[in-house]
Amino acid sequence: MNIVTILISAGTLLGLAVIFSYILGWASNAFKIEIDPRAEAALEVLPGANCGGCGYVGCGAYAAAVAAEKAAVNLCSVGGPNCAAELAAIMGVEVGETFPLRAVVHCGANTEDRLQRNEYRGEQKCFTANLVNGIQGCVYGCLGFGDCVEACNYDAIQVLDGLATVDYQNCIGCGMCAKACPRNIITIIPFKKESILVVPCSNHDAGKLVKSVCNVGCIGCKACTKVSKIFSVIDNLAVIDYDKYLEADSEELAKAAEKCPVKMLTFLKTRIK
């Protein structure tokens, strides 16, 4: 190993390094990809929760869609109106009025309100319990094993007294619980007022059958439809049209809740950022 070999080895490596780095440097310029600066700015504004509530895979995908003008700016329920306003400023568009989206459980029956039939000893999951008939009288309502609790990343839903209950201090409306529920009784609803009326029942059976299995189930009597036109009864179940919700004043809604013979229409309150 003489000095010449060392020098030549070092020189060879240096030469190869120069060649490769020159090629890579040229390539990084020649193959540069134009990234829309608005997409980067949009990603900065978004909360980074990657919850998928907007319908895109993550915040990055939603930011790219917004920058490509394929998605509306107000889809992010985590960021809420502030985020929508900032996105609108980046994109130079007008933002429509946004409402916080929140999960609502369409069942209001606690353990003592509903008819329990047979004891269920299988796996303690709604998903499996839903496959078995005859656990409880109502085949539409909450099973209470808490698949939605497991799905929630924000600690915003608990099973209290056999009924899944949303904690509106924490709920951001990402919709994971709605996807997890095997009976599809959780929906995501825009909270257009601080206190919003919901129908906490999913039972489509006729009134007499509902009465036999649940104390607080909707019997489809249509009393609420006579008070306000935002109500309708579809398949023996009262439904609120939330597109028209702001047309009804709060007195009218309170009266409708009062008129309900089973007193099941409920006002839910959320925290509006």
Binding site: I23, L24, I33
Partner: peptide, 8 residues
Amino acid sequence: FVEMYVRK
């Protein structure tokens, strides 16, 4: 190099 090329 290949990564940059394919990406572009």
